[in-house]
Amino acid sequence: MAPPLDSEKGADRLADALDATDSTVAVVGPPFAGRESILDRAATALDAPTRVRITPDDDPALPDADRPLILDDCHHYYAHRIGGFEALDRFLDRLASASGRVVTSWNRYSWNYLDAVRDLSDAFRHVFTMPSLSADEIATEVRSTVDADPSFEHPGDGRASLVTSVEYRVPVPFSDGSSRAVRLPTVDIDYLTGWLRRRESPTAEALVFERLARLADGNPGVARAVWEQCVASADVLTPSDVSLPVERGLDVGDDAARVLGVLVPKEVVTRHELAAVVPDVALTRTLRLLADGDFVVDDDPVRLRPGGLPSATDTLERRRWLW
C-alpha cells in the first residue's frame, strides 16, 4: 500500500506534478514513514529515471540532471555545523539550473530546519508531505508487512470501557525531590477515538490498532516495530499489551539528547559527522547508552531505531530542539 500524500505547494497530486517536464518535487516525511515507497511510485511514472540514494558521506554525490532524476534522503546534503551547508547550497544551485524532472525525498525535521535557515521550499515547484496514518490504515499497513495473526481480547472482565486509570507521579513538597505514584481514573482515549469513528463500542481488535496508531503517532515504520515486538511476545493481544519499546517519558540526559538531536533529523549519521557536530560529547559512552536504551544501532554509521523514535522526539520537543 502506498502511503497517502498531502500537497503543501504546487500540484494537488504527485502524478500531476510529474507531468511537467521541468518539475522539481520534494516529498517530505518523518523517519520510517515510507518516503522510499513514494519515490518508487515516482520512478514507475517517470521514463527511465536515474535514481540515487544520498548517503551520509562527507561529500555526498551531485548527479547530473540530464535525465529524470530521483534522489532519496536529500537531508544528507547538510550537516548541523559551521560549513555544513556547502553541499546543500551546491545542490540547490544545480537544482535551479536543472532542465529535467527532479524528485527528492527529505526527512521532515531536516526539512523544517533547512526551510527556516535556507528557504528550502523556495527551491521546489511542488512540495508533498506525508500525513499520519489512521488506525485503520496502520492496521492494513502492519498486516501487509508483518506475518502474524494474533487474536484479540479485552482486558479484565472482557468488556470495553470508556474509563481507565493512569499512574500519575505527584511531586511531594518538602522532600528530597522524590515523588509518589497514585492511580487516577481517566477517559480511555483509544476507546473514545474508536467510538467517535464507528459510533459503536469498539472491538478489542479496533482498540489494539487505535492504541498502536496513537503510540506510533500514525507513523507506519514505528507501528511496524511496535507490532513486531507485540506479536513476538503474545498470541493473544489486549490493548494494554501494545507498548512502545522505549518509554515515552524516559529522559536520557543532555549529552544523549544532543546526539538524538543530530540523529532524528538525519536517521543515519557517520561517527565522523557526529564527532564534528557534537565535539564535546563523549561519543562512545553516549552511543552505548543510547544503544542500551534501544534508541540507536551503535555502528558506523549510527542508525536510529524506529521503536525509539517517539521517545526521542518527545525528549527533543521538551528541550525545544526539534524544528
Binding site: 559551521i82 535557515v117 525545544r320 524544528w323
Partner: peptide, 18 residues
C-alpha cells in the same frame, strides 16, 4: 561564519528571526 554559528547552535529557538 557568525550567521552559521547562530543557525547551528542547539540553543537557537525554532522559527524565530535571526
Amino acid at each position: 561564519l557568525v550567521e552559521e554559528a547562530v543557525y547551528t547552535s542547539r540553543h537557537l529557538a525554532p522559527n524565530r528571526p535571526v
